[in-house]
Simulated assay, not measured.
Amino acid sequence: MLQFCIHYGLHFGLPLLIALLFFKTYWVKAYIIMLLAFVIDLDHLLANPIFEANRCSINFHPLHSYYAIVVYILMLFFNRTRLLGMGLVAHIIADSVDCFLMQI
Rank of each mutant, 00 (worst) to 15 (best):
Phe12Glu: 01
Val28Arg: 05
Leu101Glu: 05
Asn59Leu: 00
Phe60Glu: 12
Phe60Val: 08
Met1Leu: 09
Phe23Gln: 08
Lys24Leu: 04
Met75Glu: 03
Thr25Pro: 00
His44Glu: 06
Phe23Glu: 13
His11Tyr: 03
His91Asp: 07
Tyr67Asn: 02
Leu42Gln: 08
His64Gln: 02
Cys56Trp: 04
Ile92Ser: 11
Gly85Tyr: 05
Ser65Leu: 06
Leu17Val: 13
Met34Lys: 04
Ile33Ser: 13
Phe23Asn: 07
Pro49Phe: 09
Phe60Cys: 00
Phe22Met: 02
Cys99Tyr: 07
His91Asn: 10
Trp27Ser: 04
Arg55Asn: 11
Tyr66Cys: 00
Glu52Asp: 13
Ile93Val: 14
Met86His: 04
Pro49Gly: 09
Asn59Phe: 03
Phe4Ser: 00
Leu46Glu: 10
Leu101Lys: 04
Ile40Tyr: 10
Asp41Asn: 12
Lys29Asn: 12
Phe12Pro: 04
Pro62Asn: 03
Ile58Met: 13
Pro49Val: 05
Phe38His: 12
Leu14Thr: 05
Ile32Asp: 04
Leu45Pro: 10
Ile18Lys: 06
Leu10His: 03
Lys29Gly: 05
Lys29Ile: 11
Leu46Phe: 15
Leu14Glu: 11
Thr25Tyr: 02
Ala94Arg: 07
His61Ser: 09
Arg55Phe: 08
Lys24Ala: 14
Val89Pro: 01
Tyr67Arg: 06
Cys99Ala: 04
Ser57Glu: 13
Met102Trp: 11
Tyr72Phe: 12
Phe51Trp: 15
Tyr26Leu: 06
Met34Phe: 11
Thr25Lys: 14
His64Trp: 02
His44Pro: 09
Phe23Ala: 05
Met102Thr: 01
Pro15Trp: 02
Ile92Gly: 00
Leu76Cys: 08
Pro15Arg: 02
Ile50Glu: 09
Tyr72Trp: 06
Arg80Pro: 00
Val89Arg: 00
Leu76Gln: 13
Gln3Ile: 15
Met1Trp: 09
Leu74Arg: 02
Arg55Glu: 12
Ile50Tyr: 07
Thr81Arg: 07
Gly13Gln: 07
Ala90Gln: 09
Ser65Phe: 01
Val28Pro: 00
Ala53Val: 12
His7Lys: 13
Gln3Ser: 13
Met86Thr: 02
Leu35Trp: 11
His64Val: 02
Leu88Cys: 13
His44Leu: 09
Ile50Gly: 03
Ser65Ala: 01
Ala94Ser: 15
Ile73Leu: 15
Ile73Ser: 03
Tyr26Thr: 11
Tyr72Met: 07
Asn59Trp: 03
Phe12Ala: 11
Leu14Phe: 06
Ala37Trp: 06
Phe60Leu: 14
Phe78Lys: 10
Val97Phe: 12
Leu83Met: 10
Pro49Glu: 12
Cys99Phe: 08
Phe60Asp: 14
Ile40Ala: 10
Ile104Ser: 08
Asn54Lys: 13
Ile104Thr: 11
Asn48Thr: 14
